[in-house]
């Protein structure tokens, strides 16, 4: 059996990639992709851990729910991005600075 630490290292690397993508990119669609990567790194953790516990099916169900919620999140995110494009004519996040302190 593959040791669980390898899965955790993989998921940590994916998670870091996701955070990097969300915090450095200027394009909201790429940021949305970063968020999906973050959610999927949690999925990898759940699936990996599910093999090491007797009632591991709970973790697999959790992963299914995460996939569903991520799809809903992406749908709302893309809808908002479409509205932004209609109103601002661009989706580069640097122009969205009407709200500042």
């Amino acid at each position: 059996m593959i040791p669980v630490s390898l899965f955790v290292i993989l998921s940590a690397a994916l998670f870091a990639t996701g955070i990097f993508g969300v915090s450095t990119k200027r394009n909201p669609i790429v940021m949305l992709m970063g968020i999906e990567v973050m959610l999927n790194s949690a999925n990898i953790n759940f699936i990996a851990f599910s093999r090491y516990y007797a009632d591991g099916y709970i973790a697999q169900i959790f992963a299914m729910f995460i996939i569903v919620v991520a799809a809903a999140e992406a749908a709302i995110g893309l809808a908002i991005i479409v509205r932004l494009f209609r109103n601002f004519g661009t989706v580069n996040i640097d122009v969205f600075s009407r709200l500042r302190w």
């Binding site: 998670f15 949690a42 759940f46 709200l99």
Partner: peptide, 26 residues
Amino acid sequence: NEAGFKYLFFGAFSSGLILYGLSLIY
């Protein structure tokens, strides 16, 4: 629009953090 956009991205980002934490707890 801008409010919705910011709320969605910060909210989704925080969900990512929470889920990773929950997966470790599991």
